[in-house]
């Protein structure tokens, strides 16, 4: 028996293209989750936590984004390309103490800042060469440079803080502009420059990552290194560049933090903050397997975590309880990521 001919050529026209489009759109916008989370969280806290919606507090939160924001941007690039960078927060200290020492000695801003940049980039280059060209495991390499940078900073300062920074330096980086009054704030509150800086950096580097040739190459390298390489993408160069960028971001963080604290110490970014950086990036849609994530997502991930800490602070919740809650949120988000991948 020979089967009768059936004309089935139309079956593959999308039957319900509205649903299909929504599906694709949700899939291609994982940053939606942290954005929604942040907005909901902001509303809830504004209504329930006293002083949360106060202008001064809002500007505080905005300024705090400047502390970890750059590190999150660097981490996003590294993770999208399929790597991880555990060293960035101790590199901040290493760059800060050397740069600050030179600033104090010369009483001028520029040489010290340049030195911070050099040290940040140097650590990024070491990570990049070891991982991209010598093919060592990112986790191990950056764990080593993390210890190396910390050891270096402690040795260099003999565990002492560096004081006496030039006022010009402090004024530039910890400045607040456009003072205004709003709500119950008695004194005018300015917009922190650090927050503006991170916003500008996020817009530019977010654009580069999501829209440009280089950015696509970073994504494809992380999505499947072997395929990317065979497709003609110089994956080693791409991976190298992401670690150098992370180093640069650590250097900028060193400047902002040193100015804000008015001092440089060996433990400027405490180790629990490393977890915040990774958590913000993962909440923002990045995956430890690479190829996923976005600057927009990471920034909202960071905003979410910063608001959480801030609200707990205002409520007087123990910071350790806050850590437990943050850890729980992170596990929940990663769980969601696994579900989404199914």
């Amino acid at each position: 028996m020979v089967g009768e001919m059936v004309d089935t050529s139309q079956t593959y026209v999308p039957r319900d293209s509205g649903v299909l489009k929504l599906w694709h759109w949700l899939r291609s916008h994982p940053a939606l989750l942290p954005v929604v989370l942040s907005v909901v969280m902001a509303l809830v806290f504004a209504l329930t936590v006293p002083n949360f919606a106060d202008l001064r507090n809002i500007m505080n939160i905005f300024g705090q984004l400047g502390f970890l924001g750059f590190l999150c941007i660097g981490m996003t690039y590294v993770m999208v390309a399929g790597g991880i960078d555990l060293s960035s927060y101790t590199v901040v200290s290493a760059a800060a103490v050397v740069g600050a020492t030179v600033m104090v000695a010369t009483d001028s801003t520029v040489p010290g800042c340049l030195l911070m940049l050099v040290i940040g980039l140097a650590f990024g280059t070491i990570n990049g060469i070891a991982i991209a060209y010598l093919r060592m495991v990112p986790f191990i390499v950056t764990l080593s440079t993390m210890v190396l940078a910390e050891g270096f900073a402690i040795w260099f300062t003999q565990a002492q803080s560096v004081y006496g920074l030039p006022y010009a330096f402090i004024d530039i980086f910890s400045a607040r502009i456009l003072p205004m009054t709003w709500g119950i704030s008695a004194r005018p509150v300015g917009i922190p420059v650090a927050g503006i800086a991170v916003l500008v950096a996020a817009l530019i580097l977010g654009f580069v990552l999501s829209r440009t040739l280089y950015g696509r190459r970073v994504y494809l390298t992380g999505a499947n290194e072997e395929t990317a390489r065979i497709s003609g993408i110089r994956v080693r160069r791409i991976k190298f560049s992401t670690y150098v960028l992370a180093g640069l971001m650590a250097a900028i963080t060193a400047m902002i933090l040193t100015a804000d604290l008015g001092t440089a110490t060996t433990a400027m970014v405490r180790d629990v903050r490393l977890m915040d950086i990774i958590a913000a990036t993962v909440i923002g849609g990045a995956s430890l397997k690479g190829g996923k994530g976005s600057i927009l997502g990471s920034m909202f991930g960071l905003l979410f975590l910063t608001m959480l800490s801030n609200a707990f602070n205002l409520l007087g919740v123990s910071p350790f309880i806050a850590m437990v809650i943050k850890g729980t949120v992170l596990v929940a988000v990663i769980g969601l990521d696994v579900l989404r991948a199914k």
Partner: peptide
């Protein structure tokens, strides 16, 4: 699956990957 495709990516990103520039 191992070195021909970006499995998680859309078809259009796979196709343009060799001539991105």
């Amino acid at each position: 699956r191992t070195d021909g495709l970006f499995l998680d990516e859309a078809i259009w990103k796979n196709i343009s990957s060799t001539t991105l520039a």
